[in-house]
Simulated scan of single mutants.
Amino acid sequence: MKQIARITILYSLFAAIATIANLGTQVIVIWIYQGPFAVEISILIGTLTGLPIKYVLEKRHIFEFKSDNLMHDSKLFLLYSFMGVFTTALFWIVEYGFHWAFGTDFMRYLGGAIGLTLGYIIKYRLDKRFVFVNRSQDTVEYS
Rank of each mutant, 00 (worst) to 15 (best):
K2T: 12
I9T: 11
L10T: 07
Y11L: 07
S12L: 13
L13D: 08
L13W: 08
F14W: 03
A18S: 12
L23N: 01
L23I: 07
G24W: 03
Q26C: 05
I30G: 00
Y33K: 02
Y33P: 00
Q34V: 06
F37S: 13
F37I: 15
F37E: 14
A38F: 09
V39Q: 11
E40D: 15
E40N: 15
S42A: 13
L51I: 12
L51R: 04
L51N: 04
E58P: 03
K59C: 08
R60D: 15
R60L: 14
F65Q: 04
F65T: 05
L70F: 07
D73R: 04
L76S: 06
F77C: 06
M83N: 14
T87F: 10
A89N: 09
L90F: 08
W92D: 08
W92C: 10
I93T: 11
V94D: 02
V94S: 04
E95I: 02
G97F: 09
F102V: 10
G103R: 02
G103W: 03
T104F: 03
D105K: 08
L110K: 01
G111V: 01
A113K: 02
A113P: 00
I114H: 02
T117H: 09
G119F: 01
L126C: 11
F130E: 08
F132N: 00
N134F: 03
V140K: 15
E141A: 14
S143K: 15
